[in-house]
Design a binder for these strands. Structure first.
Lengths: 157, 157
DNA sequence: GAATCACTACTCGGATAGGGTGTGTCCGAGTATACATGG
DNA sequence: CCATGTATACTCGGACACACCCTATCCGAGTAGTGATTC
């Protein structure tokens, strides 16, 4: 899985802790975790296209969350970065070569593809059920001082 | 996900239908679905290393299943081809840059990584629960004539 | 003094190179078969 | 005729190129602020 997913998730949480009052630039979000600024910008663009964050150009510009954390699921972020394609894609090799049966015999779906799709569905269901607010809550329970530290750092120079 | 997974799964089912009496060469398995023989051979090697299939060299050589289908899970095949690494790997960017808190503050796991790992666990659990024999049964119910057709083709020239 | 306008500085957005992993191919190591040879 | 040794053909196994996508970077489009200019 793309590394950008991890960056996007952390950045969303940071944006939430900073608050929606002012926009934060990609460069600043990147500096906070020592990430390449231009590349993080690319990931944030993807989040923007997906409607997860809003963006404004120019001075005082930057990114901010487009909706509250409890309305953003892990699935939303993963889909925004990785795309909507399934990990396992059936290429219907059963219909290729001498192994292909009579035409029209393949009305039923490939049993292998179905089994793989079912497993992937379980994964997606789990991701869709967990919102970023759940993650935030757990993170704050583990490190209660983190939100303040983050807010202060981003408020400073 | 690697395309080899699909090939490996179909090949395992084909091997089961052919029967354990004689070994089948990678070239023949590949020809059945019009796949590049040398590359399918590579995937079968991975299955061999994982102990899913057995291999013998020389004339009359080839591959055959190392154990019955009901003792081979989808997870086994995926792990054999893709490797044991998790799809989402946490690089602990929360400990990088100015955002890093005091040393020793990170005894608890990253909440993001935990949530992603839980989803992936659901996926793995589903794959581990489904055996190739389940898939075979469903496939035979959808196309009852397929096993005979496969057996005949591999028996022929 | 206030309004208008041009200028500047700053940020996102997409277009542009580089590297690593999957994809595809090739040749050598090893073995069962077939055949020639000798008893 | 039977046993033995040898040559041979065939297959797996790993080493070797190629391609595509992720990673990383740069420059242009657009905007808010600032200052000068004019009424």
């Amino acid at each position: 899985m793309s590394e950008g997913v991890e960056w996007a998730l952390h950045s969303c949480l940071n944006l939430a802790w900073i608050g929606p009052e002012r926009a934060v630039t990609a460069a600043r979000l990147a500096a906070y975790h020592d990430l390449p600024a231009a590349y993080l910008n690319k990931q944030l663009q993807a989040l923007s296209r997906a409607g997860i964050v809003g963006s404004v150009s120019g001075p005082k510009g930057g990114f901010r969350l487009a909706r509250p954390l409890d309305r953003i699921s892990l699935m939303d972020v993963v889909t925004a970065i990785e795309g909507p394609e399934e990990a396992f894609r059936c290429t219907e090799i059963r219909q290729q070569g001498p192994g292909a049966g009579p035409a029209g015999a393949y009305t039923a779906g490939c049993a292998i593809a179905e089994a793989m799709a079912k497993a992937e569905l379980a994964w997606r269901r789990e991701l869709a059920a967990r919102t970023l607010d759940d993650v935030r809550e757990r993170a704050e329970r583990q490190a209660p001082e983190a939100p303040d530290r983050i807010r202060r750092w981003f408020a400073g120079a």
